[in-house]
């Protein structure tokens, strides 16, 4: 259920230094999110497609993921055109869609997908372990990095615990339905998960102390930036500059 399917691979993007990828993705995401003119947004989307292309991720998987995440955008398409004031372009029974409303939705769709594709191409192609080390290297507080890495480490363990609890429910003939009994069972399941997590945490911490933990994780991960990293950073900066020019310079 929890998988890092995109992190496997050996494309150009997979090999880039995760620190550079985080910086690129962040700057790029903000540049696109804060733009509003269509030429800027189309440039952004085009660059995202380029990144997607060189990441060589399985296309069908990406399409499925993008479709799923577009739910919120779809919700906007159902509501905003019909509630936004402005000149009417289309009427469906009692509802009229306005030009401004449609434009806003189009903007949101472009922005959302441009950022999403760049995120998949740049961030989802790194493992969480290397992202954590990279974040620490970029100056994120150490406690935060510990939380991220330990959380990641134990998600899979907790998932297994969860499957075990669900299995034992199933063997006892549990059938979920809209009843208080179902909710009670789920609540106890969640509670049991927390109790097991808390007990495991104590054992883990004691084991860490036994191994001499004194507030620091030593990472064996060494970062070395290559020419490729600098090249792609420059490309991203150029595209960001292009987006800013298209957004702010009146033609």
């Amino acid at each position: 259920m929890v998988q890092e399917s995109f992190a496997l691979g050996n494309s150009l993007v997979h090999r880039l230094d995760p620190r550079f990828k985080i910086v690129m993705a962040t700057l790029y995401a903000f540049a696109v999110a804060l733009s509003n003119r269509f030429p800027a947004l189309f440039l952004g989307l085009a660059f995202s497609f380029v990144l997607m292309g060189i990441s060589r991720l399985p296309l069908w998987e990406v399409v499925k993921r993008v479709a799923l995440v577009n739910g919120f955008v779809l919700f906007f398409w159902f509501v905003i055109p019909f509630t936004y004031p402005g000149e009417a372009v289309l009427s469906l029974g009692p509802l009229t869609a306005t030009r401004d409303g449609v434009l806003i939705c189009a903007r949101i769709t472009l922005k959302s997908n441009a950022i999403l594709l760049a995120f998949i191409a740049l961030i989802a192609t790194s493992s969480v372990a290397s992202l954590g080390a990279a974040l620490g290297n970029l100056g994120v507080p150490e406690k935060m990095v510990h939380l991220l890495l330990l959380n990641y480490r134990y998600i899979f363990v907790m998932e297994e615990e969860y499957h075990r609890l669900v299995r034992s429910l199933t063997v006892r003939g549990f059938q979920p339905s809209t009843r208080v009994h179902t909710y009670k069972t789920f609540a106890y399941l969640v509670g049991m998960l927390f109790v097991r997590a808390s007990e495991r945490a104590e054992r883990v911490y004691m084991a860490m102390l036994c191994r001499g933990f004194c507030g620091k994780f030593h990472s064996l991960h060494e970062f070395d930036r290559s020419r490729g990293d600098l090249f792609w950073l420059c490309c991203t900066m150029t595209i960001i500059a292009g987006i800013l020019i298209l957004e702010w310079v009146p033609f």
């Binding site: 929890v2 939380l147 959380n151 907790m158 969860y162 998960l193 808390s198």
Partner: peptide, 30 residues
């Protein structure tokens, strides 16, 4: 973070992993 001492970090992290998993549970309604 200020309130979480180093000795409470593993607890917070593992509980957070439990929350992550629990928030994927789907509960039927109708």
């Amino acid at each position: 973070l200020k309130k979480l001492n180093y000795d409470r970090i593993p607890r917070a992290a593992i509980l957070s992993a439990a929350f992550f998993v629990a928030s994927l549970i789907h509960v039927p309604i109708g």
